[in-house]
Amino acid sequence: MKDKIKVAIFDLTDCEGCELQFLAFREKLLDLEKSIEITNWRLAKAKNDNGPFDVAFIEGSPLTLDDIEMIKEIRQSAGAIVALGDCASLAGIPGIVNPREREALARKVYGKNYELAVKRVYPLSHYITIDYHIRGCPVTEPELEYVVSSLIWGKVLSPKPFPVCLQCKAKENHCLLLEGKACLGPITKGGCGALCPSVSHRCYGCYGPAKGANIEPFKKHLSEVVGRDEASRQLHFFITNPSMEEENKEKKKA
């Protein structure tokens, strides 16, 4: 039998909800352990190996200098890197405010002379090359299982190129957007099984933008439903990220 695949699971600044989905595997984790060996997982193990790893999962936002140094080190010692969840993949929740606001908020919380060590929130891909992104806040157990088993069998990973509405329609849910609610299903990446609309909660975009999502016209429509300010707040959740938008604007100027 070939050697076990060496896997590491790292977390940066975040809620740790995505990595907990590994524990949601339960019995399957024992099966997986026949093919993979988790050699570094701070949350679950005392003895942690410094690499090399075949695959490293990284969760969270790089918000400290240690975080940034660490992911660069991991890039050196890992064959493939998977960005686990929205914080790693899209700058997630910390990215919902722009850099200027972030600085002001830090001073409000920690005192007027407080200096942020890392001023801007970026996804991992700003600092290192990422081989695969798993979206979701949190990621779902089936998708995580799909990625891990594909890695074990050497299968090519294929992203799901459809929005939330596809699975929502298949479930024959009532359309919340047509009911005048700010449902973000049409522009949000699918794969969650249309979880929120299925329990009568509007989709708030926690899988991030779908591939090719036509965001501007949708924003116009949403503005008619809930007003311009609220439409823009709703998109500044998981769909567009003020931190990144600011960066793009500055790039254009330069």
Binding site: L12, T13, D14, C15, E16, G17, C18, E19, L20, S61, P62, L63, T64, D66, D67, G92, I93, P94, I96, V97, E101, R102, A104, L105, A106, K108, V109, Y110, L116, A117, V118, C137, P138, Y204, E230, R233, F237
Partner: peptide, 30 residues
């Protein structure tokens, strides 16, 4: 405590009250 600044009390400012339960859940995955 070496966590980066998370600023949740600030992230909810200026947002609709309905977002507060959704955003504050993300304080902790446990």
């Amino acid at each position: 405590v070496d966590e980066g600044e998370r600023l949740f009390e600030g992230l909810v400012l200026g947002r609709n009250y309905e977002d507060a339960p959704l955003i504050s859940a993300r304080i902790c995955g446990v």
